[in-house]
Design a protein around this nucleic acid. Sequence first.
DNA 1: TCTTGAAAGTACCGATCGGTATGTTTATAT
DNA 2: ATATAAACATACCGATCGGTACTTTCAAGA
Lengths: 217, 217
Amino acid sequence: MVPGMRNAAETRAMLLDTAIQLIWQSSYHQVGVNEICRQAGVTKGAFYYHFETKADLYYAAAHNHWNEFKDEFDRQFSPSFTPLEQLQNLIDMIVDKQKNDPLADEMEVSGCPIFTAGAQVGAEEAKVIQCSREITGEVNKYHIALVRGLKADDMLNGDPNIVQVARMIHQYIQGLLIYGRVFNSLEIVQTDLKEASYRILDLKQEYRQQSVTSRIA
Amino acid sequence: MVPGMRNAAETRAMLLDTAIQLIWQSSYHQVGVNEICRQAGVTKGAFYYHFETKADLYYAAAHNHWNEFKDEFDRQFSPSFTPLEQLQNLIDMIVDKQKNDPLADEMEVSGCPIFTAGAQVGAEEAKVIQCSREITGEVNKYHIALVRGLKADDMLNGDPNIVQVARMIHQYIQGLLIYGRVFNSLEIVQTDLKEASYRILDLKQEYRQQSVTSRIA
DNA sequence: TCTTGAAAGTACCGATCGGTATGTTTATAT
DNA sequence: ATATAAACATACCGATCGGTACTTTCAAGA
């Protein structure tokens, strides 16, 4: 073992997880280094041993979070699912993440934990913006594959530009989550997400499912 | 005249305009009261004479900005335009606002000056969130009228829920602008806005226009 | 055992945060 | 002319910001 290593990996992991959680629930500027340390049960000495700046921490934390979440993406976008099932998985995944993750008190929707921060900072915080761009690029690969699959199975009307449609899906999801965050309503997210996805994709009518509420009725 | 009034109205107006500008270009938390005062050419004494808190200033500034911008909305959504023209006006208006307004250096897209701040703060800043909600409600009236008009003229496929479609349009626009902000690309905004609007509305094919670039080609 | 360096603790830095206390100017009513 | 209050200026507050300097603890190698 390396000398002096008490449990550096755990400390680092705690800082990464805590940072994402706090910043996600609140905002990049609102949550300070001090509070991240306090919540992580770590002192500032440890913090600045592992990370050079707050922005560096966020960058590492976001990428770490994405890497963990990537497994979920791989499962839900598995080729074992039909494109239609993949679409439904994506929708469910978004809603479930808002439902299940530990949120701030009485906050139903927190948005995307990674992209949100990119929207919260000005151009000064280059590293935060860059982070949003990079991970958006990663996520977009899944969206593109989804749209490509739907088109290949002839489920889409017209002859869409695949990359553009995938991008629009992403744009809409981000807008929707921020809307849900501002209006503190997970219900609207649930209600609008599927319908809007169908519309942006221009999914052929015969492949569209009724919404959950309508199906119950 | 009221005693002591040097030019309170101008001072107040300067603070309102400056606040919107700075916060829009950067972020709610990043721009402090001090800098707002500096840029406005006003001292802190004047600031806190006119406004009780920073949040109060923002609230007033956002509503003031909306009231000024409302005239533009009324023009572009005038009943003298067909619903289709109104839609085109909305699209042009969004792009033009990003183009024409004084932006930060090398920042092509700043997003919606009002809704953006709502995305930038946590639930603590109740007044900022409330502000986003209120003005969103106002803007939504125009979107609803637009969708209603399109439907009345039988330009939309299916039998859409007007309120929902209007809401989805708003959600998409916000997501698009934040996307454009993060990726610093007005071109993507221009490219995607019209196509996505057509899709979300499910505008009948015969009423859709080709995008500007395609029409040139 | 004793050194060594990684990992963490403690105390503190200057700067800035939003906000306040108190003084000063200025136009108006008397 | 003088009192009065609106409108602003100046100086300052405690708290917190991100970050640094210095010290201490602890595990491994020699």
